[in-house]
């Protein structure tokens, strides 16, 4: 028997609204106003999202981001800093106790990431899940993922890189004083990859998001019903964007 999920394809959005909508969907699924939901989206303008526990000044050149017009947002999930540009981002919200939300956090990462692995196989990629929360291809990172559990629900979101501009990324991130920027960039280029690099061709958002939705459906036994966020979710997303995610008290909390 298939699990029935809602599929939202909301396209590119501003960082504060993206995080607001993820949290708004968490709230509406928790209140049983919405079914379990997979959302696929992008970022415009480019943005850096920080993990909940990261120190912003440890990780990001705040002034460089402002000069470059790159938004800075702090996630409600842990993990590392992510530069959001050419990628497909997903978020999945599932009530705890649902068969697709195992109690074990490690197992839930494995299960949900199986959807991404299957999706990437549809594009001709051979990725592998790398515990705790990464998906690699030939030993290089293609996807990072982060999970939280609140209000009796699991929210996991993550990215699949269509392209990666490591030089630009490190013009915005802090370079540890123990390392030179040049060495850091060359190490990062060796550690991180993208779909375009693996496939040797340009791959666009639509092609990747279609494969990703298919991967989740296949690997997790999901039947999707396409929809749009409810008016309540959109209003809550905007409220959270204005009152929380764009506020210095939140962004600079650590």
């Amino acid at each position: 028997m298939k699990h029935r999920f809602r599929l939202l394809e909301t396209g590119p959005g501003r960082a504060f609204h993206n995080m607001g909508l993820d949290e708004a969907i968490l709230g509406s699924v928790a209140a049983r106003l919405s079914p379990p939901t997979l959302r696929l989206y992008g970022w415009n303008p480019e943005a850096i999202s920080l993990g909940y526990f990261q120190g912003i000044r440890d990780e990001v050149d705040v002034e460089a981001c402002a000069r470059a017009g790159v938004d800075l947002v702090r996630r409600i999930t842990g993990g590392g800093a992510v530069f959001h540009a050419a990628e497909v981002t997903y978020s999945i919200v599932i009530p705890e106790g649902h068969p697709l939300a195992p109690g074990s956090i490690l197992e839930s990462y494995r299960l949900i990431c199986a959807g991404i692995v299957e999706g990437m196989k549809r594009l001709g990629v051979e990725p592998e899940f790398a515990p705790i929360n990464d998906i690699n291809c030939r030993g290089r990172k293609l996807s990072g993922n982060a999970q939280t559990r609140k209000l009796g629900c699991l929210l996991q979101h993550g990215t699949i890189l269509l392209e990666v501009d490591v030089d630009r990324m490190f013009s915005l991130l802090k370079v540890p004083k123990e390392k030179s920027a040049g060495r850091l960039i060359s190490e990062a280029k060796a550690r991180v990859t993208s779909l375009s690099e693996i496939l040797g061709r340009k791959i666009g958002y639509d092609e990747c998001s279609t494969a990703l939705a298919g991967g989740f459906a296949e690997a997790l036994g999901i039947e999707f019903e396409s929809d749009t966020p409810s008016a309540g979710e959109e209003a809550e997303a905007e409220r959270l964007a204005q009152s929380k995610f764009s506020q210095p008290a939140w962004v600079f909390r650590r």
């Binding site: 909940y52 990261q54 939280t148």
Partner: peptide, 12 residues
């Protein structure tokens, strides 16, 4: 003491 980093902790 305070901690910062790339780790996860639930509930935060």
């Amino acid at each position: 003491i305070s901690f910062r980093g790339d780790f996860f902790a639930l509930p935060e």
